[in-house]
């Protein structure tokens, strides 16, 4: 097999382009990483130290930024006094729960939509995605009324249900695309081998792993970062990290240190998840099983 990379020859233009690309990436890194760095450092600083800033333009005094005694008192405050342990667990349960339900239901539904022909299939398919077209705010009030009628306000179950209603259509759309790319012959081979339809479906699941990986990330990210549902449907019993963080902004006292620390503990798990699941995302799809 020949190399997949196209042969590229250097020209003056391409050199300029390379330099431009490097500069662009440098600025982009600064733009994305700086807030995270400031947040992380500030979370370990005393309030006074956090607001010690060098004068504008005085780059020689940048060391001032790193000149502090690290303290974990903000983290201690969050977990011991403010009950962030519960909120953290709530976030995990809500995000994880909705991701699992969405993956299970979504993959089965996507499989059916990918493999079977039936009347009104395209209409059904469009209807599924149309539920994602309205902004969350637009449906929040009626949803609140419905959830209150079912006693789901302030419960984990309610929050998971709310996230799932928004994640499921997305799951179906993403996963259908992946199932469409799996050759039908592999399931047929599996059925001839002696599996039932459901076993054949399970046999091809490893082939859509990249799709499932991608979707799990998106689904958890949505639930983890969500503020609207979490503050309105989850308020009280199922409070997650974002609404809990907002409560640190009080009229008399904005607890900057704790807010930074809350920011760190909200961001960190998502970064780890991204690293963990990355290898699924880059795995080839059918890995050469079938002659194309």
């Amino acid at each position: 097999m020949s190399s997949r990379d196209a042969v590229v020859y250097k020209t003056p233009l391409s050199r300029i382009w390379t330099i431009f690309t490097v500069i662009f990436i440098a600025f982009y890194l600064l733009w994305t990483l700086l807030p995270l760095v400031i947040m992380t450092f500030s979370s370990f600083k005393d309030l006074l130290a956090a607001f010690q800033l060098p004068p504008v333009g005085a780059f020689s005094e940048i060391g001032l930024f790193f000149n502090f005694t690290p303290t974990t008192k903000h983290y201690y405050n969050l977990f011991v006094n403010l009950g962030f342990t519960t909120y953290f667990l709530n976030s995990i349960i809500a995000a994880g729960g909705s991701a699992i339900i969405s993956v299970v239901l979504g993959s089965m539904c996507a499989y059916a939509l990918s493999r079977y022909e039936f009347r009104g299939k395209s209409d059904l398919f469009f209807w599924i995605i149309s539920t994602r077209m309205a902004p969350v705010v637009a449906v929040l009030v009626p949803l609140y009324a419905i959830f209150r009628g079912m006693d789901l306000i302030g419960t984990q179950a309610g929050l998971i249900l709310a996230f799932t209603t928004f994640n499921l259509p997305f799951a179906i759309w993403i996963l259908k695309g992946f199932f469409d790319n799996v050759p039908y012959a592999i399931e047929e081979a599996s059925m001839v081998d002696g599996s039932t339809r459901f076993q054949a479906f399970r046999a091809i699941l490893p082939l859509v792993a990249p799709g499932i990986g991608a979707f799990v990330i998106l689904c958890i990210l949505f639930a983890w970062n969500d503020f609207l549902f979490a503050s309105i449907i989850g308020s009280g019993g199922a409070k997650t990290l974002p609404p809990a963080t907002v409560e640190l902004v009080q009229p008399q006292n904005i607890q900057w240190g704790s807010i930074m620390a809350a920011g760190v503990i909200t961001t960190l798990p998502m970064m780890l998840l991204g690293l963990l699941i990355r290898r699924y995302l880059v795995t080839g799809l059918t890995m050469g099983a079938v002659r194309e």
């Binding site: 012959a185 047929e188 081979a189 599996s195 046999a203 890995m287």
Partner: peptide
């Protein structure tokens, strides 16, 4: 009868192996 109950074995034109 479903394929699994027919006690047959089939070889496909494009092999249809399980890639993983």
């Amino acid at each position: 009868l479903e394929p699994k109950d027919r006690d047959i074995a089939m070889v496909f034109e494009n092999y249809a192996l399980y890639p993983h």
